[in-house]
Protein backbone atom coordinates (compact mmCIF):
# COMPACT_ATOMS: atom_id res chain seq x y z
CA UNK A 1 0.00 0.00 0.00
CA UNK A 2 1.36 3.41 -0.94
CA UNK A 3 2.75 5.81 1.68
CA UNK A 4 0.15 8.48 0.96
CA UNK A 5 -2.77 6.09 1.14
CA UNK A 6 -3.82 7.21 4.60
CA UNK A 7 -4.17 10.95 3.90
CA UNK A 8 -5.83 10.17 0.59
CA UNK A 9 -8.28 7.90 2.30
CA UNK A 10 -9.05 10.55 4.88
CA UNK A 11 -9.62 13.09 2.14
CA UNK A 12 -11.90 10.68 0.33
CA UNK A 13 -13.84 10.09 3.53
CA UNK A 14 -14.32 13.79 4.13
CA UNK A 15 -15.47 14.17 0.55
CA UNK A 16 -17.80 11.23 0.93
CA UNK A 17 -19.23 12.58 4.17
CA UNK A 18 -19.85 16.02 2.62
CA UNK A 19 -21.46 14.47 -0.40
CA UNK A 20 -23.55 12.20 1.81
CA UNK A 21 -24.76 15.10 3.94
CA UNK A 22 -25.75 17.00 0.81
CA UNK A 23 -27.66 14.07 -0.63
CA UNK A 24 -29.30 13.48 2.74
CA UNK A 25 -30.53 17.08 2.90
CA UNK A 26 -31.81 16.77 -0.65
CA UNK A 27 -33.59 13.51 0.16
CA UNK A 28 -35.46 15.12 3.03
CA UNK A 29 -36.35 18.26 1.05
CA UNK A 30 -40.10 17.41 0.83
CA UNK A 31 -40.23 17.78 4.61
CA UNK A 32 -40.01 21.53 4.01
CA UNK A 33 -43.52 21.50 2.63
CA UNK A 34 -44.65 19.51 5.65
CA UNK A 35 -43.21 22.01 8.12
CA UNK A 36 -44.21 25.12 6.17
CA UNK A 37 -47.81 24.99 7.29
CA UNK A 38 -46.73 24.48 10.88
CA UNK A 39 -46.39 27.26 13.40
CA UNK A 40 -44.18 27.07 16.45
CA UNK A 41 -47.20 27.63 18.70
CA UNK A 42 -48.96 24.82 16.88
CA UNK A 43 -45.98 22.52 17.36
CA UNK A 44 -45.72 23.30 21.06
CA UNK A 45 -49.46 23.38 21.75
CA UNK A 46 -50.41 21.61 24.96
CA UNK A 47 -53.08 18.95 25.42
CA UNK A 48 -56.65 20.32 25.38
CA UNK A 49 -57.15 19.46 29.03
CA UNK A 50 -54.00 21.31 30.06
CA UNK A 51 -54.82 24.57 28.29
CA UNK A 52 -55.75 27.48 30.55
CA UNK A 53 -58.83 29.48 29.48
CA UNK A 54 -56.55 32.20 28.11
CA UNK A 55 -54.36 29.72 26.21
CA UNK A 56 -57.45 28.05 24.81
CA UNK A 57 -58.77 31.39 23.54
CA UNK A 58 -55.46 32.01 21.81
CA UNK A 59 -55.51 28.54 20.26
CA UNK A 60 -59.04 29.05 18.94
CA UNK A 61 -58.09 32.43 17.47
CA UNK A 62 -54.99 30.95 15.85
CA UNK A 63 -56.99 28.09 14.34
CA UNK A 64 -59.57 30.53 12.97
CA UNK A 65 -56.78 32.54 11.38
CA UNK A 66 -55.20 29.43 9.91
CA UNK A 67 -58.55 28.38 8.43
CA UNK A 68 -58.90 31.82 6.87
CA UNK A 69 -55.38 31.63 5.41
CA UNK A 70 -55.57 28.08 4.11
CA UNK A 71 -59.20 27.76 3.12
CA UNK A 72 -60.23 31.37 2.61
CA UNK A 73 -63.23 31.03 4.88
CA UNK A 74 -64.21 33.04 7.92
CA UNK A 75 -65.23 30.59 10.60
CA UNK A 76 -66.02 30.61 14.30
CA UNK A 77 -64.38 27.89 16.35
CA UNK A 78 -65.88 27.53 19.79
CA UNK A 79 -65.09 25.45 22.80
CA UNK A 80 -68.32 23.84 23.94
CA UNK A 81 -68.33 21.88 27.19
CA UNK A 82 -70.72 19.14 28.23
CA UNK A 83 -73.79 20.16 30.26
CA UNK A 84 -74.07 18.58 33.71
CA UNK A 85 -77.06 16.26 33.95
CA UNK A 86 -76.98 15.44 30.25
CA UNK A 87 -76.01 12.04 28.84
CA UNK A 88 -76.65 11.60 25.16
CA UNK A 89 -78.05 8.48 23.55
CA UNK A 90 -79.16 7.72 20.04
CA UNK A 91 -81.65 5.17 18.73
CA UNK A 92 -82.43 4.15 15.19
CA UNK A 93 -85.64 2.55 13.95
CA UNK A 94 -84.60 -0.07 11.41
CA UNK A 95 -88.19 -0.66 10.31
CA UNK A 96 -88.42 2.91 9.09
CA UNK A 97 -84.95 3.50 7.66
CA UNK A 98 -85.06 3.29 3.87
CA UNK A 99 -81.32 3.49 3.19
CA UNK A 100 -81.43 6.79 1.30
CA UNK A 101 -78.03 7.90 2.71
CA UNK A 102 -79.27 11.41 3.40
CA UNK A 103 -77.71 11.18 6.86
CA UNK A 104 -74.40 10.26 5.22
CA UNK A 105 -74.63 13.32 3.01
CA UNK A 106 -75.68 15.65 5.81
CA UNK A 107 -72.74 14.46 7.92
CA UNK A 108 -70.40 15.07 5.00
CA UNK A 109 -71.41 18.73 4.74
CA UNK A 110 -72.00 19.50 8.41
CA UNK A 111 -68.62 18.23 9.51
CA UNK A 112 -66.51 19.83 6.77
CA UNK A 113 -65.35 16.51 5.39
CA UNK A 114 -62.89 16.26 2.56
CA UNK A 115 -64.78 16.66 -0.71
CA UNK A 116 -62.53 14.47 -2.87
CA UNK A 117 -62.96 11.34 -0.75
CA UNK A 118 -66.57 12.27 0.06
CA UNK A 119 -65.86 11.21 3.62
CA UNK A 120 -68.63 10.77 6.19
CA UNK A 121 -68.83 9.31 9.68
CA UNK A 122 -71.85 7.22 8.70
CA UNK A 123 -71.86 4.08 6.61
CA UNK A 124 -75.16 2.44 5.65
CA UNK A 125 -75.19 -1.32 5.21
CA UNK A 126 -77.82 -2.96 3.05
CA UNK A 127 -78.75 -6.06 4.98
CA UNK A 128 -80.69 -9.16 4.08
CA UNK A 129 -83.95 -9.55 5.91
CA UNK A 130 -83.72 -12.35 8.40
CA UNK A 131 -80.07 -11.81 9.19
CA UNK A 132 -78.06 -9.47 11.36
CA UNK A 133 -74.81 -10.98 10.10
CA UNK A 134 -72.72 -8.01 8.98
CA UNK A 135 -70.84 -10.29 6.62
CA UNK A 136 -73.95 -10.34 4.45
CA UNK A 137 -74.23 -6.56 4.45
CA UNK A 138 -73.24 -4.31 1.57
CA UNK A 139 -72.24 -0.65 1.96
CA UNK A 140 -71.82 -0.02 -1.76
CA UNK A 141 -75.38 -0.57 -3.00
CA UNK A 142 -76.41 1.83 -5.72
CA UNK A 143 -79.98 1.07 -6.80
CA UNK A 144 -83.44 2.33 -5.90
CA UNK A 145 -84.23 1.97 -2.20
CA UNK A 146 -85.74 0.39 -0.24
CA UNK A 147 -84.96 -2.76 -2.23
CA UNK A 148 -87.31 -5.73 -1.69
CA UNK A 149 -86.12 -8.19 0.93
CA UNK A 150 -83.58 -5.76 2.37
CA UNK A 151 -83.28 -3.54 5.39
CA UNK A 152 -80.76 -0.81 6.06
CA UNK A 153 -78.33 -0.48 8.93
CA UNK A 154 -76.62 2.90 9.27
CA UNK A 155 -73.49 2.62 11.42
CA UNK A 156 -71.59 5.49 12.99
CA UNK A 157 -69.69 6.00 16.24
CA UNK A 158 -71.57 4.17 18.96
CA UNK A 159 -70.10 6.44 21.68
CA UNK A 160 -69.42 3.34 23.76
CA UNK A 161 -69.48 3.63 27.52
CA UNK A 162 -66.48 1.30 27.52
CA UNK A 163 -64.66 2.57 24.45
CA UNK A 164 -61.77 0.38 23.25
CA UNK A 165 -60.44 3.26 21.15
CA UNK A 166 -59.88 5.45 24.21
CA UNK A 167 -58.10 2.72 26.11
CA UNK A 168 -55.54 2.03 23.40
CA UNK A 169 -54.55 5.62 22.58
CA UNK A 170 -50.91 5.96 23.63
CA UNK A 171 -51.06 9.72 24.22
CA UNK A 172 -54.58 10.31 25.63
CA UNK A 173 -55.52 12.23 22.51
CA UNK A 174 -59.02 10.74 22.66
CA UNK A 175 -61.27 10.51 25.69
CA UNK A 176 -64.86 10.30 26.80
CA UNK A 177 -66.62 13.41 28.06
CA UNK A 178 -69.21 13.51 30.83
CA UNK A 179 -72.11 13.61 28.35
CA UNK A 180 -70.84 10.37 26.83
CA UNK A 181 -69.30 11.75 23.65
CA UNK A 182 -65.88 10.37 22.73
CA UNK A 183 -63.78 13.22 21.35
CA UNK A 184 -60.37 13.63 19.74
CA UNK A 185 -57.92 16.49 20.26
CA UNK A 186 -56.85 16.81 16.62
CA UNK A 187 -53.87 18.85 17.71
CA UNK A 188 -52.57 16.20 20.08
CA UNK A 189 -53.14 12.99 18.06
CA UNK A 190 -49.92 11.48 16.69
CA UNK A 191 -51.68 9.49 13.97
CA UNK A 192 -50.67 5.96 15.01
CA UNK A 193 -54.14 4.65 14.08
CA UNK A 194 -54.23 2.18 16.98
CA UNK A 195 -57.74 3.45 17.82
CA UNK A 196 -58.83 2.72 14.27
CA UNK A 197 -57.65 -0.87 14.71
CA UNK A 198 -59.37 -1.12 18.10
CA UNK A 199 -62.79 0.22 17.08
CA UNK A 200 -65.22 -2.65 16.33
CA UNK A 201 -67.62 -0.37 14.42
CA UNK A 202 -65.44 1.21 11.74
CA UNK A 203 -66.28 4.56 13.32
CA UNK A 204 -62.89 6.22 13.12
CA UNK A 205 -61.36 7.92 10.12
CA UNK A 206 -57.82 8.96 9.35
CA UNK A 207 -56.87 12.09 7.43
CA UNK A 208 -54.78 10.45 4.73
CA UNK A 209 -54.36 13.91 3.21
CA UNK A 210 -55.23 17.44 4.27
CA UNK A 211 -58.98 17.80 3.70
CA UNK A 212 -60.05 19.91 0.73
CA UNK A 213 -63.25 21.93 1.06
CA UNK A 214 -64.17 24.89 -1.18
CA UNK A 215 -64.44 28.11 0.87
CA UNK A 216 -68.13 28.68 0.12
CA UNK A 217 -69.05 25.15 1.20
CA UNK A 218 -67.35 25.34 4.58
CA UNK A 219 -69.70 25.16 7.53
CA UNK A 220 -68.51 28.16 9.59
CA UNK A 221 -70.23 27.00 12.79
CA UNK A 222 -67.36 24.97 14.26
CA UNK A 223 -66.11 23.61 17.55
CA UNK A 224 -62.59 22.67 18.64
CA UNK A 225 -63.56 19.09 19.47
CA UNK A 226 -65.89 18.48 16.56
CA UNK A 227 -66.26 19.78 13.03
CA UNK A 228 -63.39 22.23 12.57
CA UNK A 229 -61.31 21.28 9.53
CA UNK A 230 -58.94 18.56 10.65
CA UNK A 231 -55.19 18.64 10.03
CA UNK A 232 -53.49 16.03 7.85
CA UNK A 233 -52.32 12.85 9.53
CA UNK A 234 -54.69 12.70 12.51
CA UNK A 235 -57.74 10.67 13.50
CA UNK A 236 -61.29 11.97 13.55
CA UNK A 237 -64.70 10.57 14.39
CA UNK A 238 -68.40 11.29 14.88
CA UNK A 239 -69.05 13.56 17.86
CA UNK A 240 -72.86 13.44 17.72
CA UNK A 241 -72.38 16.94 16.23
CA UNK A 242 -71.45 18.33 19.63
CA UNK A 243 -71.26 21.85 18.19
CA UNK A 244 -75.02 21.51 17.70
CA UNK A 245 -76.12 19.07 20.39
CA UNK A 246 -74.35 20.83 23.24
CA UNK A 247 -76.47 23.84 22.33
CA UNK A 248 -79.65 21.79 22.52
CA UNK A 249 -79.95 21.24 18.77
CA UNK A 250 -80.40 17.94 16.96
CA UNK A 251 -77.46 16.30 15.20
CA UNK A 252 -77.29 16.95 11.45
CA UNK A 253 -77.91 13.30 10.55
CA UNK A 254 -81.18 13.29 12.48
CA UNK A 255 -82.45 16.47 10.82
CA UNK A 256 -81.61 15.02 7.43
CA UNK A 257 -83.51 11.80 8.02
CA UNK A 258 -86.71 11.97 5.92
CA UNK A 259 -88.43 9.11 7.73
CA UNK A 260 -87.75 9.97 11.33
CA UNK A 261 -85.88 6.75 11.93
CA UNK A 262 -83.48 8.56 14.23
CA UNK A 263 -84.20 9.42 17.86
CA UNK A 264 -81.79 11.51 19.89
CA UNK A 265 -81.84 13.04 23.33
CA UNK A 266 -80.81 13.18 26.94
CA UNK A 267 -81.19 9.75 28.46
CA UNK A 268 -81.25 11.25 31.97
CA UNK A 269 -84.46 13.14 31.17
CA UNK A 270 -87.41 10.78 31.90
CA UNK A 271 -89.71 12.71 29.57
CA UNK A 272 -87.34 12.56 26.58
CA UNK A 273 -88.14 10.69 23.40
CA UNK A 274 -85.00 8.60 23.68
CA UNK A 275 -86.10 7.39 27.12
CA UNK A 276 -89.49 6.42 25.74
CA UNK A 277 -87.85 4.38 22.99
CA UNK A 278 -85.47 2.64 25.38
CA UNK A 279 -88.36 1.83 27.74
CA UNK A 280 -90.95 0.76 25.18
CA UNK A 281 -89.08 -0.72 22.25
CA UNK A 282 -87.04 -3.89 22.21
CA UNK A 283 -83.76 -2.23 21.45
CA UNK A 284 -80.44 -3.91 20.80
CA UNK A 285 -76.85 -2.81 20.28
CA UNK A 286 -74.28 -3.94 17.73
CA UNK A 287 -71.69 -6.49 18.85
CA UNK A 288 -72.99 -6.54 22.40
CA UNK A 289 -70.75 -9.51 23.15
CA UNK A 290 -67.68 -7.25 22.99
CA UNK A 291 -68.76 -5.43 26.14
CA UNK A 292 -68.35 -1.97 24.64
CA UNK A 293 -71.77 -0.83 25.92
CA UNK A 294 -72.79 1.45 23.05
CA UNK A 295 -74.99 4.50 23.54
CA UNK A 296 -76.34 3.88 20.07
CA UNK A 297 -79.36 1.58 19.97
CA UNK A 298 -81.27 -0.07 17.16
CA UNK A 299 -84.84 -1.33 17.15
CA UNK A 300 -87.51 -2.71 14.87
CA UNK A 301 -91.18 -1.83 15.09
CA UNK A 302 -93.20 -4.69 16.44
Amino acid sequence: MAENSVPRRVALKVLGATLGAGVFAQALAPLKQFTEGMSLQGFLQKHYKELSPRELREVLRRLEEETEQRYGAEVTIRDLRPTPGVQFAYALNLSVCIGCRRCVEACHHENNHDRASHNSYIRVLEMEQGSLDLERGDANYDHAVPAPGKFYLPVQCQQCENPPCVRVCPVEATWQESDGIVVVDYNWCIGCRYCEAACPYHARRFNWRAPEVPAREINPDQAYLSNRIRPQGVMEKCTFCLHRTREGRMPACLEACPTGARVFGNVLDPSSEIRWVLEHKRVFVLKEELGTRPRFFYFFDE
Partner: peptide, 20 residues
Protein backbone atom coordinates in the same frame (compact mmCIF):
# COMPACT_ATOMS: atom_id res chain seq x y z
CA UNK B 1 -98.01 6.49 18.95
CA UNK B 2 -94.43 6.35 17.63
CA UNK B 3 -94.90 9.75 16.01
CA UNK B 4 -96.04 11.20 19.32
CA UNK B 5 -92.89 9.84 20.92
CA UNK B 6 -90.54 11.08 18.24
CA UNK B 7 -89.66 7.74 16.70
CA UNK B 8 -91.54 8.08 13.40
CA UNK B 9 -91.56 11.04 11.05
CA UNK B 10 -88.72 13.47 10.49
CA UNK B 11 -88.01 16.47 12.66
CA UNK B 12 -85.69 19.45 12.88
CA UNK B 13 -84.71 21.87 15.60
CA UNK B 14 -83.96 21.27 19.24
CA UNK B 15 -83.79 18.08 21.25
CA UNK B 16 -83.76 20.35 24.30
CA UNK B 17 -86.98 22.32 24.09
CA UNK B 18 -86.03 24.54 26.96
CA UNK B 19 -83.55 26.04 24.49
CA UNK B 20 -85.45 26.14 21.21
Amino acid sequence: RDYDHGSHGGMRGYWDRSRG
